[in-house]
Amino acid sequence: MTRLVIETRGLTKRYGGRAAVDDVDLHVAEGARYGFLGPNGSGKTTMVRMLLGLVYATRGEISVLGRPVPSRVAEVLPEIGAMVEGPAAYPHLSGRANLALLDASGPRRGRAGRRRERVEEVLERVGLGAVDRRPVRTYSLGMRQRLGLAGALLNRPRLLVLDEPTNGLDPHGIREVRDLLVTLNAAGTTVFLSSHLLAEIEALCTDVGVVDRGRLVLEDALDAVRGPTGRLVVRTPDPEAAARVLGRAVAERHGDTLVVDAAPGGPPALARHLVEHGVPLDGLAEQRRSLEDVVVALTGPGSDTARGARRNGARPDPTSGGIRR
């Protein structure tokens, strides 16, 4: 049986007459990379703060690492690395000095020399190893994000809870953080990542929860969410010939790529049919739904989540049935 490191039941947080989080049942399995997806203002950060005991729920139950929160949150915090609503730091001190203070006040014990080694280790892991003694107030937003992630890693946590960890990073930095989280996850750390970026969740996560106006509208394994559409994607240097051979089965054309209705026998049968008619192939595969398709279908065109899914210059991607960024 899969062990849950985060579980909520009927979790609700109301501010006056508004429900920021509305009756949410969340299930995060040990060893998962769980993406908590929703636009700004959808209740993601409120949810994260409740998981860490920083905000009390109006009603509902929370269990983190097998213990109820907030009543026993002090027992689990030493095993959690967290960054919520951006990194906190003393602006007049250097990054190293901030981490040293955080480490000294944390649950880890050991000689000062060992703690300094750990500070240097996490700075290297997040790409700040070469940073000088400049105060944090001179850091860029991306550098501050890296410093916050370094602080979350100090205790070698079993569970990482991160709220928009790639905010302010350039594409190279985003990839570095993604690779780091995959490495940590492979070593046994469960990752719970809150983000409004579809591409970030789709590239990193194994499981996904989608929140819209405070309600959880989807929770599933990402592979299950991105299931087959029932169509096949054909890539060929001679799309005209392929279109003639396939006729009405062609549903879409995009340059050298054709999307066709699946035929009996699936990809092997279609490949044989094209080759027998002299059509060269560069590739043939099942078309799969994109996370965007699923989100838009669930939330509707007028929702904040659906509008967020269409931003950032997206254009059709026939290979996924969704978008290419």
Rank of each mutant, 00 (worst) to 15 (best):
E121T: 07
E121F: 05
E121I: 02
E121K: 04
V122W: 03
L123W: 11
E124H: 08
E124G: 02
E124K: 02
R125L: 14
V126P: 01
G127F: 06
L128S: 01
A130Q: 13
V131P: 01
D132I: 10
D132N: 13
D132Y: 10
R133T: 13
R134H: 08
P135G: 01
R137L: 03
R137G: 01
R137C: 00
T138Q: 14
T138V: 13
T138D: 14
S140G: 08
G142N: 06
M143I: 02
M143S: 08
M143N: 09
Q145N: 09
R146Y: 02
R146T: 01
L147M: 09
L147R: 04
L147K: 03
G148T: 08
A150K: 09
G151P: 05
A152K: 09
A152L: 12
L153V: 09
L153W: 05
L154Q: 08
N155F: 05
R156W: 04
R156A: 12
R156E: 13
R156D: 15
R158I: 01
L159C: 13
L159H: 12
L160M: 10
L160I: 10
V161Y: 02
V161F: 01
V161T: 01
V161E: 00
D163A: 05
E164F: 06
T166L: 00
N167A: 07
N167T: 10
D170Q: 11
D170W: 11
P171N: 11
P171G: 09
H172I: 14
H172N: 15
G173Y: 10
I174R: 15
I174G: 05
R175L: 13
R175I: 12
E176S: 14
E176V: 02
V177A: 02
V177C: 05
L181W: 10
T183A: 15
L184E: 15
L184Y: 04
N185I: 02
A186M: 07
A187F: 01
G188S: 13
G188R: 12
T189G: 06
T189P: 02
T189H: 09
T190E: 03
F192I: 01
L193Y: 12
L193E: 13
S194E: 00
S194M: 00
H196F: 07
L197N: 14
L197A: 14
L197S: 09
L197F: 07
A199Y: 10
E200V: 02
E200P: 05
E200C: 04
E202P: 05
E202M: 03
E202S: 14
A203M: 11
A203T: 12
A203F: 09
L204S: 09
C205S: 03
D207G: 06
V208R: 11
V208A: 10
G209S: 11
G209D: 06
V210C: 06
V210Y: 02
V210T: 03
D212E: 14
G214W: 11
R215M: 07
L216E: 10
L216D: 11
L216F: 11
V217D: 06
L218K: 05
L218V: 06
L218R: 03
E219L: 07
E219W: 01
D220Q: 14
D220T: 11
D220A: 15
A221N: 13
A221Y: 04
L222M: 12
L222Y: 10
D223W: 08
A224M: 06
R226M: 11
G227K: 12
T229Q: 08
T229G: 09
G230Q: 06
G230H: 04
L232R: 12
